[in-house]
Amino acid sequence: MQAIRELPKPLRLLGILNPLGVVEALGRAFMGRCGSIAAILAVLWGTAILIIRPSTWTPPVRSVLSRQLLFTAVDGVLSGVRFGAAVGVVVIVQAAIWIDTLGIAQGVIAPMMWRGIVRELAPLLACLVVIGRSCIPIATELATMMVNGEVELLDAEGVDPMTYLVVPRILSVVISVFCLAIIIATSMVATGYMLGWAVDAIRVDLWTFLEGIFRQANARDLIFFVPKTIIAGAFAGAICCIDGLNVRGTMTDIPRVASRTGIRALTAVLAISAILSVVFYGRFLMLKIV
C-alpha cells in the first residue's frame, strides 16, 4: 500500500483497482467459456462418431432413444401447437397494427409471417419447448443417476454411459427441435391466418394466402432452417447432458444444476440463433421485407 501511495494519482487509482487482477479475472472467465464451448464441441463430436457407428445401436440404446423421442417430441407436440398458436396470434396482431400505421399493402403479411416464423420464431420456440420440457428433466435425471451411483453402475456393467445415456438424448433433442419447429411453424401460420381472417386483417382465401407464403419461400430459408434447428438442438442437448453428468455432491445440488442448465441452454440457443442469422443473411434486421 505504501508503494501505491507514492505513485502519481492516476496510477494510484489503477493500482487500487488492480488492473492486473481485473485482466486476470476477465481472462479466467474467457478461458472458462472457451473450455465450456470446447467441452460441448467434444461431446457433439463424440456423439456424431457414435451415431454413425452401427455397434452403438444395441437394443437398450434404441429403447432409450425411442422413449426419449416419445417424451421430448411426441409429448411435446401439444405444447408446441399451443405455443405456436399463441405466438401466431401475437404476430398477426402486430402485422395488422403495422399495416394500419404504415399504410402498406396487405400482401406483405404472408411474406412477413413466413420469414419471421421460419427464419426465427419457429426454431426458437421449438428450442424453448424442448429446453423447458426435456432438457431440464434430462439434466435432473442424469444428475440424480450420477449422485446415486447409477452411472458408475452402468460403467461397471460395461455399458458406456456416453453411448447409453448421452447419444440417444442428444439425438432425440435434435430430432425433436427440428420436428417441433415444423409443427410450431404450421400452427403459427394456421392460427395467424384464422385470426387475421376473422378480424379482417387478411382478406384473401386460404389457398391464396398459402400461395403467397410459398411464393416467398426460397431454398435459402430452408437451408437456414435445417442447420439452425439441428445446431441449436445439439447444443441444448449437449449442455443438459454435460451439466447433468458433471454434478458432484449430493441430491441437494441437483435443483441448482437444473436451473443452471436451463439458463445455459437458453443462452446458447439464443446466441446460436443470433450468430447463424448474421452469418446466413449478412445483416442484423431479419424481418426486413423486400
Partner: peptide, 16 residues
C-alpha cells in the same frame, strides 16, 4: 473387458 465380469453389488445396484 468389463462386459466379461459379472458382479453382485454391495449396496445400490439398480437404475431407478
Amino acid at each position: 473387458m468389463r462386459s466379461k465380469i459379472g458382479r453382485v453389488y454391495e449396496g445400490h445396484a439398480w437404475v431407478a
